[in-house]
Design a protein around this nucleic acid. Structure first.
Lengths: 202, 202
DNA sequence: GAATATTGCAAACATTTGTTCTATGTTTTT
DNA sequence: AAAAACATAGAACAAATGTTTGCAATATTC
């Protein structure tokens, strides 16, 4: 069917127009650029695309067609994490980053800048930005961001999580460091699970 | 000045509205959501932001305000790189990813999936996606993607680049591997410099 | 404190743009 | 080949939305 192709051409046009201009096209834009002779025709195309669920459209609003999924999610960078300073309780927002959602799936994600070498053997280096999924629990072997308060040592760290004989072990991936087994186990609080990271070389 | 704050609030609102809805707000949207009492006021705000260069606006068009830079660039994933297979000359495009431009600056970027452990001590692991800036030259110590043809060994690899006594050395960051000093030095071709990476834990 | 500039408001106006209607050509079905 | 279904066009209409104008409130300057 020729119609199919035309429809896809329109869909593609809307996507490109949006990318280039920052806002969606009008039916008249479509007519001009795709050599469609009537606004009614373009209007029709848009409605067919909507029926097929290929785009969203708000009725009666101007330039309100949306082709969903440009492929990125916005996540906040909440601070620095290492073996020392805790993340501030009132998480300061250091800005938003758009990360590819195909790569980093999940609800309630945030970023933290890593400080320190404690996870170097897991390929997590000083300065990396880790992508964390907020959750209170963790499975054995997962890398987590956790807080605990143990008198001398306290704060937020990123470590590999293990539970053995009912005791939580926070294991640094650095052979020159020892496991952390907080005395005050009940103070341990999982902030989230590390699902990915980004690094930029300077 | 109170005015300043209000302006920034509007700018932020436009950005958020766009993120959430996929298209920009109208002056009346601003009035409703920011408790502005007159469309003329909102209109005024928008024009001031335009004067300051903080947004773009097409005259007389509906919903045509744009806060440039939603913060991401679209880059293609071109294939796999390791010590073996070359990237296909006709680079196959495996899709686009939106990556934060604040983090990964530069023109002409692309992604490659890394295969192998040859850069493990530089924190580049098997399965990582590296962000490469296309360029033909490199400085001493930079991590590059390079191709060479040396009879037995050939293809594209990611290695640290050194030039010593006129000879190019491709240094793996893995103490169990040896430096590569291609016999046929003239066959060495730098495809780009690695400026960052992304990883997602499965 | 008067003069002046800035800011905000309400209402009217102008333009853009979505939507509907009817007609005509084109393909598919019977 | 007639009938039916579909696709497109052109024009008119209606709603959404940008823009202008004049006035009041508030802040700033002298």
């Amino acid at each position: 069917m020729i119609r199919q192709e035309k429809l896809m051409e329109v869909l593609d046009y809307i996507r490109r127009f949006n990318d280039e201009n920052g806002f969606p096209p009008t039916v008249r834009d479509m007519c001009r650029d795709l050599k469609i002779k009537s606004t009614a025709t373009a209007y029709d195309y848009v409605n067919r695309l909507k029926e097929k669920g290929l785009l969203e459209k708000a009725e009666n609003k101007k330039r309100a067609v949306v082709v969903r999924g440009n492929g990125s999610v916005r996540v906040p960078l909440l601070g620095v994490v290492n073996a020392g300073q805790p993340i501030l309780a009132v998480e300061q927002n250091e800005g938003y980053y758009s990360i590819p959602e195909a790569e980093f799936k999940g609800e309630d994600l945030f970023l933290l800048r890593v400080h320190g070498e404690s996870m170097i053997e897991a390929g997590i280096c000083d300065g990396d930005k880790i992508i964390v999924k907020r959750q209170q629990t963790a499975e054995n072997g997962e890398i987590v961001v956790a807080m605990f308060d143990d008198g001398t040592e306290n704060g937020a760290t990123v470590k590999r999580f293990f539970k053995k004989d009912g005791k939580i072990i926070l294991h640094p991936e650095n052979s020159s460091m020892d496991d952390i087994i907080p005395e005050n186990q009940s103070s341990i609080q999982i902030l989230g699970k590390v699902i990915g990271l980004m690094r930029s070389f300077r």
